[in-house]
Design a protein around this nucleic acid. Structure first.
Lengths: 335, 335
DNA sequence: GACGTTTCTGTTAACGCTAACAAAAATTGG
DNA sequence: CCAATTTTTGTTAGCGTTAACAGAAACGTC
């Protein structure tokens, strides 16, 4: 395609120096005379020169790009995470290349990672919330900086994760504190670690209160499945409090309860997870748990960068605590 | 960082051929003996060789990467678009590099584009829904394949866009057909083309029916602003039908109406735009307009690829028609 | 079997940059 | 003012790939 822009030698010629000096100016090398630096900068500006990342990547063996592997970036959680990662990476001078994936199975993940590797990305962030993803990761080249987000807590891979257990415990405790006798749970898909953690936290809170957890009702994150679970819950008169694994499930539950004439929070209290921006405008406004996606992004990127710089692939671990956001969907049970 | 993987010459040595033959096998060049091809493939597999995209990009002047510039990829529309683009691009063997941007002003956009250019992306897709973005685009190098999505219809730049006007007209007409005397509108921010188009379509439908459009109420896409507008609408007894510029605005309106005891659809009908997955679980299920993001992504990518291949920067234009999705939030007005 | 074609394979030279070293210029100290 | 040092600049050699051309095999044809 048409005119290749000017190269370093063109800048050098215009500034009356060698291309190496231009390179030094570009990379902030200290030993360049101020006057020379200015002349080079002027030449760069005049020609509209842009360094060629490919050439740089070739010679240094590493591009200023971070690869992200994620599934379904339409969901609120992954989308927020991706956006936050991109922002943080940009601040550090890194671009973000997305390799989204339809299914989080071995092959898809490996393929996405391969694509990133062949572009010589500096490091890879895998948003790997399901079991099958973890396996794919263990057979990756060991020399590629890697961080997983919301991945398997039991794998020896650097991991940043929202503290699902603590969040779920807080949500459940909040309902117990309001006076409810027990709390039901609409869960996410059982192969997501997020789901498992949230089930776990809910169960812990109940057990700690000396209660026997009722069977969790399995959903799939969607409002549709929340609606189906809600239809069952609505018909069970003993249910007064429900914790759903995310806000969209809660939305479905809310509608089912509404249809069955069970009022929220008067008859049943509901707590969600994620704090999607719309949660405050559900009917009624939803009490929920807000994970700090920015913090997760920052932590993962920092972890990745330290690997990139040091070259060591330490198996670190960092957990971000979420916060409960109280709104109107919780009230004491009526007696 | 550790071991650089094997290079083409290593494969060549193992297979007993020249590196150029390896290159030919990799690029599907026809004139290679079947037997040689197999030997090379075997060597590639044995060594776990991965072609170096940077080297390829350097010599061809173009990487297999498409840059996407977008704002706020957390919103449903942009997120869906991004995901669809990534899918489509992957099918064509392209990676997608995201340069999201806090504000869609000149400088941010230019900066994001610069970043992409310095990585020698093959082309750029700008999701540029606001006025200020357009200006930045006109001063870009002319030789970079570029497509804008949801951008300014009046600029000489290749553009793919959802037919906002037709969608809004359909939504409004749907309400008029149900028997409503007029239709109110809660709009998006006035600097978004999406908003302008939707206002336009709404207005057209009313004018075509011989009606005088009431003043549109300005929102900002958020449920919060929908809620504020809804509080006003709820107090106006003459209002029986509302078209909101997106589903989240509709959610806010629904809640305000609910609080004021105005029932939907019995007292007031509401139609949204976007068909977010949750819309079917609002109270009541929301009638809305569904843009086909996959189609938009396919069209933009195809347009971009044809520019990349041909080298010509034709100012094409393509419009994707959205579809009305009827649910329960619309009913005839009570007399 | 010699000759022109076609098909396949190898050789060489970039692409634009950084790293490593070499040379020149500026600075210092006596 | 000369030598020793430090700072600044230039030269050369790759990084791993593709493009362009050159050379070698294989295949017909007479």
């Amino acid at each position: 395609m048409a005119v290749h822009g000017p190269a370093m030698t063109d800048v050098a010629r215009l500034a009356g120096v060698s291309h190496q000096t231009v390179s030094r100016v570009l990379n902030g090398h200290p030993n360049v005379r101020e006057q020379t630096r200015l002349r080079v900068r002027a030449a760069i500006a005049e020609l509209g020169y842009r360094p060629n990342g490919a050439a740089r990547a070739l010679v240094t063996g590493r591009s200023q790009v971070i690869g992200v592997v994620a599934q379904n970036t339409t969901l609120y959680g992954p989308a927020s995470l991706l956006a936050a990662l991109e922002q943080t990476a940009a601040e550090e001078g890194f671009a973000v290349s997305v390799g989204s994936v339809r299914n989080l199975d071995h092959r898809s993940i490996s393929a996405a990672v391969e694509r990133h590797l062949s572009h010589r990305v500096a490091g890879i962030v895998v948003i790997a919330p399901v079991e099958s993803a973890g396996e794919a990761l263990e057979r990756l080249p060991k020399d590629v900086p890697l961080v997983t987000v919301d991945g398997d807590p039991n794998r020896p891979v650097p991991l940043v994760t929202v503290d699902q257990v603590a969040g779920a415990r807080a949500a459940t405790q909040h309902l117990l504190d309001a006076g409810h006798r027990t709390v039901w749970h609409v869960s996410g898909p059982s192969d997501w670690f997020d789901s498992v953690g949230r089930i776990d936290g809910w169960r812990q809170a109940l057990l700690a209160a000396g209660l026997v957890p009722p069977p969790p009702m399995p959903g799939d994150w969607s409002a549709a499945s929340g609606y189906r679970c809600g239809q069952m819950l609505a018909r069970m008169p003993e249910v007064t409090a429900v914790f759903t694994a995310n806000d969209h499930l809660a939305l479905g539950v809310l509608r089912a309860l509404h249809e069955f004439g069970r009022r929220v929070p008067d008859d049943i209290s509901v707590v969600g997870f994620d704090d999607v921006p719309e949660a405050a405008y559900f009917i009624p406004p939803l009490t929920t748990v807000r994970p700090d996606f920015d913090a997760v992004a920052r932590a993962s990127l920092q972890m990745l960068l330290s690997q990139i710089e040091s070259g060591t692939g330490g198996a670190l671990r960092q957990t971000i605590a979420p916060a409960l956001v109280a709104r109107e969907s919780v009230a004491p049970p009526r007696r």
